[in-house]
């Protein structure tokens, strides 16, 4: 699905990266633990997290995740948004919890990084 469709499913707002709404995603990683994200495949995944520090953006960049959705209405600082703009990583925020966000994406065909459903 496109980032635009993912945004609608999660009733999310775009914080930065409107120009990437046509990016395609079919895999997801979800964690507040960045070492966990780094320990497994994440290329091309959308990353769901409650962590709003610069480390979330740097982890996405290093791991190759294509976009970040902050759950539970979390909004990062301007510094984090600026870093994401530099790293060309779109940021979204949703009012849903991590659990509900994962469930909604799963119900619409999004898989884990290894294609498992």
């Amino acid at each position: 699905m496109t980032l635009s469709e993912l945004k609608d499913i999660l009733e999310a707002s775009i914080l930065v990266g409107n120009e990437y709404l046509n990016m395609e995603f079919d895999k997801c990683r979800a964690s507040d633990l960045m070492s966990d994200i780094l320990a497994g495949p994440a290329e091309g995944c959308v990353l769901l997290t409650g962590l709003t520090t610069v480390q979330a953006v740097r982890t996405a960049s290093v791991a190759g995740a294509g976009a970040i959705v902050f759950v539970r209405n979390k909004i990062p600082s301007h510094a984090v948004i600026d870093l994401a703009r530099t790293e060309k990583i779109p940021l979204l925020t949703t009012h849903f919890s991590m659990f509900i966000s994962c469930g909604r994406l799963h119900a619409h065909g999004i898989t884990g990084p290894d294609g498992m459903r």
Binding site: M34, S35, L38, A39, T49, T53
Partner: peptide, 15 residues
């Protein structure tokens, strides 16, 4: 709180 410190750093680097 920074998303690290779960004892995965060195094992991850080795892998």
């Amino acid at each position: 709180e920074m998303g690290f410190g779960a004892g995965m750093g060195l094992p991850n680097m080795k892998a």
